[in-house]
Simulated scan of single mutants.
Amino acid sequence: MRGDQFEKVFGEFLESEAYEEAEGALFDFARAAYQAGWLAAGGEPPAPKKAVLFPRSPET
């Protein structure tokens, strides 16, 4: 029974805004670390990219 409760709550967390924010932060950290290694190894810095903004639907 406890395993089922864990899976239910964990599934809810995976669908939450908190998980989305954590996932984004981990991605940003991994990219920054990789870029630091790339530059330390003599690689060229990536070209700046123009930001793409997507419209957000109003909170419900």
Score class of each variant (00 low, 15 high):
Ala25Thr: 03
Arg31Asp: 15
Gly3Leu: 09
Tyr34Pro: 00
Glu23Gln: 07
Glu20Trp: 05
Ala36Tyr: 14
Val9Lys: 11
Pro46His: 04
Pro45Gly: 01
Phe27Gly: 06
Glu15Gln: 13
Leu53Glu: 04
Met1Tyr: 09
Val52Ala: 05
Gly24Ser: 13
Val9Gly: 01
Asp4Gln: 15
Ala51Val: 01
Ala41Met: 03
Lys49Asp: 05
Pro46Met: 03
Phe54Tyr: 02
Ala51Leu: 02
Glu15Ser: 13
Ala32Lys: 15
Asp28Arg: 11
Glu7Thr: 06
Phe54Gly: 03
Lys50Ile: 00
Gly11Ser: 13
Ala25Asp: 07
Gly37Gln: 14
Val9Trp: 06
Thr60Val: 08
Ala22Trp: 08
Ala33Ser: 13
Ala36Thr: 11
Ala33Asn: 13
Phe27Tyr: 09
Pro55Cys: 05
Ala18Cys: 00
Phe6Ala: 10
Ala18Glu: 00
Ala51Thr: 01
Ala22Met: 12
Phe10Tyr: 13
Val9Met: 12
Ser57Ala: 10
Glu21Pro: 01
Ser16Gly: 03
Pro46Asp: 05
Glu44Trp: 09
Glu23Asp: 01
Gly11Cys: 07
Ala30His: 11
Arg2Ile: 03
Gly37Ala: 08
Gly42Leu: 12
Arg2Cys: 12
Phe13Leu: 14
Leu53Val: 12
Leu39Pro: 02
Asp28Glu: 09
Arg31Trp: 10
Ala18Leu: 04
Ser16Tyr: 00
Pro46Glu: 12
Gly43Lys: 11
Met1Ala: 11
Ala32Leu: 13
Arg56Ile: 07
Gly24Arg: 09
Arg56Met: 12
Leu14Arg: 07
Ala25Arg: 11
Ala25Lys: 09
Leu26Ile: 05
Ser57Pro: 02
Leu39Ile: 14
Tyr19Leu: 01
Glu59Ser: 05
Gly24Ala: 15
Gly3Gln: 09
Arg56Trp: 07
Trp38Thr: 09
Gln5Pro: 00
Pro46Asn: 02
Pro48Asp: 11
Glu44Pro: 06
Arg56Leu: 15
Lys49Met: 07
Ala40Thr: 03
Ser16Trp: 03
Asp4Cys: 12
Gly3Trp: 04
Phe6Cys: 11
Ser16Val: 00
Ala30Gln: 08
Phe10Trp: 13
Phe6Lys: 05
Tyr19Asp: 03
Pro58Ala: 13
Val52Cys: 00
Glu12Pro: 01
Glu12Trp: 03
Thr60Phe: 11
Ala33Arg: 12
Glu7Tyr: 03
Glu7Trp: 01
Ala32Glu: 14
Gln35Ile: 13
Glu17Asp: 09
Glu17Gln: 05
Tyr34Leu: 14
Lys8Phe: 08
Pro58Thr: 07
Leu26Trp: 04
Lys8Tyr: 12
Glu12Lys: 10
Ala32Ile: 02
Ala18Lys: 10
Ala33Thr: 06
Val9Cys: 12
Glu17Phe: 04
Asp28Phe: 01
Phe29Gln: 15
Glu59Asn: 10
Glu44Cys: 10
Gln35His: 09
Ala51Lys: 02
Ala22Ser: 06
Gly24His: 04
Phe27Glu: 09
Ala18Met: 07
Ala32Arg: 15
Phe29Ile: 05
Glu59Gly: 03
Pro48Gln: 05
Lys8Ile: 02
Glu23Ile: 00
Pro48Trp: 00
